[in-house]
Design a binder for these strands. Structure first.
Lengths: 130, 130
DNA sequence: CCGCATCCACTGTGATACTG
DNA sequence: CAGTATCACAGTGGATGCGG
């Protein structure tokens, strides 16, 4: 016989590998990924230019981030083997399709982030001062 | 005199602390956060029940995740000091306001994740086999 | 110009055991 | 029931220097 609590459980489980929330986040939630996507919103852009536009990103992390995005099919890389070489990046169609959802998140931030900061301040005050 | 490239730069820089994309992700991009929010979508829920619903989460991580959400003002915690104690969690209004954007992401996943998986497969094949 | 390799510090995560 | 404490470990991020 089951306990009264188990009867309340509608869905038996939520799994990391199944939840859609988690799957997108797995793709865009690295430290620099969102910024790199943001830098490519306007169209084709060169490696060095991305680097200049994003404050504080190292070559290593930029390369790593771009490779991941490329692997996930969100970014296209075109190499012109001149000397010195030219490497241009742009969003694929799939990458562009992510811009809509990203902008929705961005909008949420604009409207609500100050509330988050307030909440943090009052939480911290309650626990570390008083 | 400026180089021809620098003239292309519309926005001088993109910063982690300013970009809205990054700020939301900072809030929801931990491993379990999205799943916990998802578990609370239906309303008030007890600690133990969340734990039963999410596959593989440890007590430590659940507590840590809930505390962060609470600190950010997305989750409310109500303790009934009986023996044994009852602790109920629910989304705040602010937390609920995040559900819309999250569902948009979820929808994107449903429609596009298979493309991501395809891209990964062909990328990996190109680099590790051939 | 673009990127890789190496080394190191740090943090997020997990396993386990204990408590009011 | 709902946590806290401790330890161990893997992955991520950063600094630097080399290479095509």
């Amino acid at each position: 016989m089951k306990s009264p609590y188990s009867a309340k459980i509608v869905q038996p489980d939520i799994s990391l590998s199944i939840c859609g929330y988690s799957k997108v986040l797995e793709i865009v939630s690295n430290k620099w990924t969102a910024l790199v996507v943001y830098a490519m919103e306007d169209g084709v852009i060169r490696y060095g230019e991305i680097r200049r536009r994003i404050e504080g990103i190292s070559k290593k992390m930029l390369t790593q981030t771009l490779r991941q995005l490329e692997r996930n099919g969100l970014v296209k890389r075109v190499i012109t083997p001149s000397v010195p070489p030219i490497v241009e990046y742009s969003l694929t169609r799939l990458g562009e399709s992510l811009l809509g959802p990203m902008r929705v998140l961005n909008q949420w931030t604009k409207e609500n982030y100050s509330l988050v900061e307030q909440a943090r301040a009052s939480y911290d005050q309650a626990y570390y001062e008083e």
